[in-house]
Simulated scan of single mutants.
Amino acid sequence: MDALTLLLTRQSCPRLIAPAPSEAQLKVILDAAARVPDHGGLTPWEFIIATGEGLNRLADVFVAAATEAGEDDDFIAKAGNMPLRAPMVITVVAKTRSDIKKVPELEQQLAAGCAVMAMQQAAFAQGLGGIWRTGNFAFDETVNTALGLEVTDQIVGFLYLGTPAIDMPLKPQKDGSAFARYL
Score class of each variant (00 low, 15 high):
D38S: 02
G41T: 03
L161M: 06
Q154C: 10
P104R: 10
L16H: 06
I90Q: 00
R181P: 04
Q25E: 11
P21V: 01
V143N: 02
T145V: 14
N136W: 12
A180K: 06
A20P: 05
L55Y: 09
A34R: 15
K171E: 11
A111Q: 04
L55E: 06
R133D: 00
A111S: 15
L128P: 02
G40I: 14
L8K: 15
R10T: 03
K78W: 15
L58Q: 03
I17L: 12
A59W: 13
A64H: 11
Q173T: 12
E68D: 15
I76G: 06
F139R: 10
N56A: 11
L161V: 00
Q108L: 08
N144S: 15
T91K: 00
K174C: 02
H39Q: 14
D99E: 13
S177N: 11
W132Q: 04
L58R: 02
K102A: 13
A24D: 13
T163L: 04
R181S: 14
L7W: 03
D153E: 05
A138K: 05
Q154M: 12
L58E: 04
E71C: 12
Q173K: 14
A33C: 07
E68Q: 14
V143Y: 03
E105P: 05
H39M: 12
M1G: 11
L149T: 02
E53Q: 13
L26W: 00
P164V: 03
G127W: 01
K78D: 08
T43I: 07
L55M: 08
D38E: 03
L84M: 14
D73Q: 10
K101A: 14
C114L: 08
L4E: 04
F179P: 08
T9K: 11
Q121T: 06
P14L: 04
G41M: 05
Q126E: 03
G130Y: 05
P172T: 06
V36H: 07
A32H: 06
L4V: 05
V151Y: 04
I17W: 01
Q121G: 06
G130V: 05
V143D: 01
H39G: 05
A115D: 03
L6T: 00
A112Q: 08
E105F: 07
G148P: 03
K95Q: 14
D60P: 04
Y160V: 03
